[in-house]
Design a protein around this nucleic acid. Sequence first.
DNA 1: ATGACTGCACTCTGCAGA
Length: 260
Amino acid sequence: MRIATWNVNSVRQRLAPLLAFLKETAPDVLCLQELKCEEGAFPRLEVEDAGYNVVLHGQKTFNGVAILSRHPIEETIVGLPGFDGEGQSRYIEAVVSDGAGEILRVASIYAPNGNPPETPKYAYKLAFMAALTEHARALLRLEETTVLAGDYNIIPEDRDVHDPAAWAGDALFLPQSRAAWRRLTNLGYTDALRAVSDAAGLYTFWDYQAGAWQKNKGIRIDHLLLSPQAADRLSRVEIVKAARAGEKPSDHVPVFADLA
DNA sequence: ATGACTGCACTCTGCAGA
């Protein structure tokens, strides 16, 4: 099973690269974030024609998450359980069959940015992470092959950012944000990328501004967290860095986790 | 060089993103 996550920064603006990505890389499951459209405006026919089933939690202008699957989608949870999202579409979960009797539980997550930190936006970010952690704790008890994938808007460690000092006061890198990340992973989830590499400078986001891409001033904020049953099967992780170099790219690139 | 962008909407300016 090849599972990918990608914050597309508007699915309508990214339709051509999205369809090309599906055709070229053929993920079994793709989690999308920042659709920036309501369900009625989602390019469902195009995605279905590419061979994918779709479930999504849309919203006008902001947020929006989807799960695309080549295999049947058997069960869906829309919205993060236990969290009053105040109308923000940031979580969808589905149980996907692989057609051979195995199931995968997968979530597509768009965690809040949280800037500026001295505002209610930061409290909202931490509240989301607390609710996500509680739900993730409940999911572990199922002892299933589970992948919690998405844009967490958290830089876990110094090695995940080009200039730690420059990001010290940012909501993505504040100690409380990183502590929230550790509380989640410490439950027993494996950060897929860190299971295969200790290297610094493996980024998934480069700002559109100030030549961040050209100067490789990136950050790693898109993550796939694996339940123990999923981690047992992890064979490969890939950050599709080339996606940032195309025409009209998203500011995020896709990340793959392959399960044997 | 403390610069530089992109997408969206009650659009031609302001907000959000990270």
